[in-house]
Design a protein around this nucleic acid. Sequence first.
DNA 1: TAGGCCTCTCAACTAACTCTCAGCTTTCTT
DNA 2: AAGAAAGCTGAGAGTTAGTTGAGAGGCCTA
Lengths: 229, 229
Amino acid sequence: MAKTRVLIVDDEPNIRDLLATSLRFAGFDIQTAANGAQAVTAVTESEPDIILLDVMLPDMNGFSVTKKLRASGIQAPILFLTARDDTEDKITGLTVGGDDYLTKPFSLDEVVARIQAILRRTKTADAEPSIIDAGAIVINQDAHEVSVEGKNVELSPTEYKLLRFLVMNPDRVLTKAQILDHVWEYDFNGDMGIVESYVSYLRKKLDPISSRPLIQTKRGVGYIYKKQD
Amino acid sequence: MAKTRVLIVDDEPNIRDLLATSLRFAGFDIQTAANGAQAVTAVTESEPDIILLDVMLPDMNGFSVTKKLRASGIQAPILFLTARDDTEDKITGLTVGGDDYLTKPFSLDEVVARIQAILRRTKTADAEPSIIDAGAIVINQDAHEVSVEGKNVELSPTEYKLLRFLVMNPDRVLTKAQILDHVWEYDFNGDMGIVESYVSYLRKKLDPISSRPLIQTKRGVGYIYKKQD
DNA sequence: TAGGCCTCTCAACTAACTCTCAGCTTTCTT
DNA sequence: AAGAAAGCTGAGAGTTAGTTGAGAGGCCTA
């Protein structure tokens, strides 16, 4: 299967680069545009499979761009990016037809997860549930549910994202810096102590119902989740 | 089974796009026309299974278009779209046969439901009632009746639509934005607090007669209805 | 025109979550 | 064996998300 083509439309170069780098690494084929006009040009040159679109662009807003794109016959789903405080009025009517939105500042892992969720839903008509099955831990992404050896666990949003990141990268040590960069919002500026805290929270919830410690510490390096012992 | 072909006839590009995107995602094969003349041309090219027709078009009214379509031998049922303040006389006489009408602004979920209702009625001669059977909750769409574990519940129109949307997407978290975009009329521009209010109303009616909480909150994500626990 | 249902808004309240910090334990180094 | 570094965790402050009651206003029916 060819690489999925993603078009990133955002006027802030920082965000654009952050997304481009991160998504390229995640295996996507990336194109970027800094405003609505460029976006319209870009889609005609190479039709993307999905579009990441900032709702507030210098030349036009999300609705106008969407309209122009749709008018050019583009049917690719759109993941809208909005500022936290835009979220009441600006997004209504956006999550139609497989589209979705994400508020800035987001976490990189969340962007990838959303893209995959959208593509899954739009590609296959009747989407089978998206399940990450990694041995002892099974995550149902549609229902946002986690089970350990068959038993359900209730997790807070951050605990969920952290565990998902660990489980999606099994048998690999992830440094605290990597975890911070992927799981926390990109403008988070506390220290890595928070990762330790949340690993602790997870262990407190997971280990009592598991037959073995699930998240292991690699001292001086980071944390690892192993599919089997 | 091949995809159902829907022809959308409306002069407002916004509405056309909204409908096209939404219905395409719902699994229909979409064609569009901006006026009566285009509509007549379109139906001859590819015979639609159902037509969504705005009653007030720039070049001719609903009666004329219908007459022309019928004259070309098209028997597909028509779902008329009318403005809220259009008086009764604009509609009377139109909804003969399997036809029906819907007032603007409508909700997207409602459009899909109506289309399916019409197709059900016109396709199978002896219409068996359309029942959504999702575990504890059973919805009879023809009778607009809801039962929880066999017991009947009276719901207001909005409560009904909200519950239907949740029940038609079981075991999947639906965000407040998705719910707002599908269940509420497309021009609604209040905030998502209303979804919370209506979930609260539903719970007050459903939970007392149910053996388990039916609508669960996924904090930071949305709401979910699970077929079984 | 009054009464009743319905929709929607608002605000108080509650529960849950995020993050920081400090003191503790474990592991490594010399 | 002692000290340093790294990691763990409980407590708590501050914030945010979700729930619910009260009520304004619209619309329909009697």
